[in-house]
Simulated scan of single mutants.
Amino acid sequence: MHVLVTGASGFVGRRLVAALRDTDHAVTVLVRDASTYDPAPDVTVVEGDVLEPGSFEPSLDGVDVAYYLIHAMDADGDFVERDRRAARNFERAANAADVDRIVYLSGLGDDGDDLSPHLASRRAVESTLAEGTADVTVLRAAIIVGAESASFRMIFQLATRLPVMVTPQWVHVACQPIAIDDVIAYLLAVLDLPETAGEVYEIGGPDVLTYRDLLTETAAVATGREPIIVPVPVLSPRLSAYWVDLVTDVPAGLAHPLIEGVRNPVVVTDDRLQRLVDIELTPFETAVRDAIEAETGDGGVVRKRAATRGTE
């Protein structure tokens, strides 16, 4: 099978390409700047931008399945409009190239909720891609825990830089994070399961936590202590986004849409894919430990805690 990975230089895309190299599939990647991408010898690199029709279509030549891993939040301006335009361009090009299937990594959240602009944009991309002739498989995930994940980096920096936090009421909202390795495992699994074509699935790790739990458990793993968290009703997600700007180095173009999205519970309510795919899901604490070690190469308190728990 010939597989295309868009967004191949991103957090998820790079790991997916590495995993695909251990399969029998031919792999092509689409990147905006080939000069900054260091491909493996057996990976075909095509330069192009889905926002510029005519620049990226050669990447789809002979492709059976395309992974669509493109999100526009990290750029300036209206990311909702760019997401919509990029998805429309890709859907039309995939039609013209007779691509059989598109696999899209979307965001978890109940469609009945008043979705944040971030999650609403993800839904719009799902709908746009599905208007074409290719079958679309959608995987919806909440926070992906791993080194270089913007959402996890934001949580990690908040948890480790502030011993006391005054937070909005959203810290009580439920979330189901998932380890990056588990996301990659699901993305690979659907490739070889034809019955997943045209389906929408929810994926998450084994732990359902509040955002308060995410902060305290991350701090405990990283530093051995838990911060004091004081929720107050007058601090809205929008106001807290500016507070995040002061404490973390996550670009505002990423942080603000993510923070606005925390008003929506993001918990798996449909476990059909988990029943189809036999994956041993990674506990949140283990995912945090793996992310820190991948980022810094230093387990520190993390290894001590793991060793202590192993002797209990």
Rank of each mutant, 00 (worst) to 15 (best):
L188G: 09
G146M: 05
V288Q: 11
L4W: 03
S55W: 04
E81L: 11
S121F: 09
D181Q: 15
S151G: 08
D76F: 05
V221H: 13
R32A: 06
L276H: 04
E202H: 02
V3H: 02
G132S: 01
V166I: 15
L20D: 15
C175S: 15
R85L: 09
N264V: 12
T218W: 03
A124Y: 01
T248M: 07
A18G: 04
L20W: 13
A197D: 06
G146F: 01
L105T: 13
D192A: 15
G109I: 05
T218R: 02
G54C: 05
L215T: 12
D98I: 10
A219G: 04
V244P: 14
R303S: 14
A18Y: 03
R263V: 05
L69Q: 13
V45R: 02
G10T: 14
P117F: 03
R263H: 04
D278C: 08
D110M: 01
G297V: 11
L188N: 10
M154H: 00
I279E: 14
P233C: 04
T223D: 05
E52R: 04
T160V: 03
P227S: 00
R82C: 06
T28V: 05
P237C: 09
V46P: 04
T196I: 11
D38W: 10
H118F: 14
L108I: 07
E260A: 11
V250A: 08
D182F: 01
A40S: 13
T44E: 12
G146R: 08
F90W: 15
G310W: 11
A18T: 10
V302C: 02
T167K: 06
L108T: 06
V17L: 04
I229D: 06
T282Q: 12
C175T: 15
S55E: 06
D78S: 08
P53G: 07
F56W: 07
I279W: 00
T296N: 04
P265R: 02
P163I: 02
R123W: 08
P168K: 11
I279S: 10
P265E: 13
A255F: 04
L193D: 06
V268W: 12
D271W: 05
V190G: 07
I279F: 07
T23M: 13
L51T: 05
R32H: 12
A150V: 11
F284Y: 15
G297Y: 09
S151R: 09
E293Q: 14
D24N: 00
A34P: 08
R305M: 06
A120G: 14
V12D: 02
V232D: 07
S106Y: 02
E295H: 07
V164T: 13
N95P: 01
F284A: 03
I143R: 01
Q274F: 00
A222F: 11
H25M: 06
F56C: 11
D110I: 01
T196H: 14
P177E: 01
R101A: 09
T196M: 06
P168Q: 09
R123D: 00
H256L: 00
V3K: 00
E126A: 09
G10M: 10
T23F: 10
H256E: 14
